[in-house]
Design a protein around this nucleic acid. Sequence first.
DNA 1: CGCTTTGTTGAACGGGTTCAATTCGCGTGG
DNA 2: CCACGCGAATTGAACCCGTTCAACAAAGCG
Lengths: 253, 253
Amino acid sequence: MTSQSTPLAQRLSTYTDLSEGELSVLAAFHRHQRRFAMGTDLVHEGQNQPPAYILSKGWVCSYKVLRNGGRQIVDFQIPGDFLGLRSVLLRSANHCIEAVTDINASVFRAVDLVGTFETFPRLARAILWAISSDDAIVEERLVSLGRRDAVARTAHLLLELEARLQSVGLATKAGYDCPLSQYQLADALGLSAVHMNRVLRQLREEGLMTFRSGKVIFDDFDHLVHVADFDMGYLDYAGTKHKIDPRIATLGG
Amino acid sequence: MTSQSTPLAQRLSTYTDLSEGELSVLAAFHRHQRRFAMGTDLVHEGQNQPPAYILSKGWVCSYKVLRNGGRQIVDFQIPGDFLGLRSVLLRSANHCIEAVTDINASVFRAVDLVGTFETFPRLARAILWAISSDDAIVEERLVSLGRRDAVARTAHLLLELEARLQSVGLATKAGYDCPLSQYQLADALGLSAVHMNRVLRQLREEGLMTFRSGKVIFDDFDHLVHVADFDMGYLDYAGTKHKIDPRIATLGG
DNA sequence: CGCTTTGTTGAACGGGTTCAATTCGCGTGG
DNA sequence: CCACGCGAATTGAACCCGTTCAACAAAGCG
């Protein structure tokens, strides 16, 4: 297993090509692997000084619980995503993080991450880009909840996940494996589970996409993009990479 | 006018006490003041390499426009807030920024900001804290749009603004000056302007709060907090400040 | 196997939208 | 000083998207 193969390295490479040195620094952050079973809470709300992780396998969700009993999933995390990084700067965690599937995650100390920023400024830029991209995702979700109807909202989320998964090699325009239940999807989209079911049925019956038995299949990708009003610009996954230092050789295939 | 008096310095001081040196560094970022008239676009969506600002006077909003014509305001910014900082790391702006009132804002180069981080790690921490806090705000707004009804959502936003304004000396538990129109409020809360009006009337008639002629007045603060399910923990404005030992001052700690 | 979680469907209800009309506030020009 | 114009605020009524309640089927799992 080369350092190139970690999902985080793969994701960052959509932003800029990384050198051998940078890749090995990145690999070093994967030293302390931990496994968590499906349903485990990695971080609970209000927890002090929670640790940060890099997710390398499986899916995770961040959510908040309301007094009235409802819950809102803020975002799903997939391999290559950071977990709980924001909580490091605030004095306590402001949301829960739960494993959606069995997962592998690497604990790391934020101090160490910041420490490498001085020596590896290109890597720093790439990581800050990834973090900014995560923020853009939350922002776009907010737009969905505020101004898109249930069908567009659903299509938008599942298309976004396609783009994100594709950047770590886990999806194609045909579809991807999706471990989410309709309840979790509903909690992310601000819908009731009942209506979630009806929306998914509608998308299926209209020949747009199929969400069933752990798989998302796009039956008419382009039409779905139109229905969702999906413009992946906010993810900043443009084909053109940042060329920063031509002296550094890129890793060949 | 001492450096202490800039809204940003005031805001950061709720996190940690800053030294004279740190305060003057902060003041240096306010050198290039610009004025923008109400309604001006500081940044438009898709703009390349947009500048970053520190808002020192007036209100601003960040929003996205949808294909169907609707718009969603992601957040309002008040004195002491950063504008367009995220867009610096992504390759282009992913939302518009518009002046809600006439404003004063200071342009600065993100490079210079990062440059000071090495020499003033405590200041760096404070600024990263402020940025994280902004993210937490967007996240909590998302929760509102997903799982709170119109009344709670409205109360929650107006209470949040009270807390934020209070940290820069522009509000008390009695109320504050609020230049927002009902249309802008509606666009931030994912509601129609018509319903926004009815919700505000209800809040007024129930003796909870009054939104009228540019002022927000809290008629029953505690009850309103309960109705909104408002817990300001996510803002991390706890009364206790961080005392950071200067000897071990590092970013990640 | 039985039990629990997830998915599915029907019917009634309700919060919020939409359409439409009227009023208010206020700056501007006659 | 008043008339006008225009955006913001306000109110009514009909409609609809999504919720809620309720029941049952299907699928995993010990």
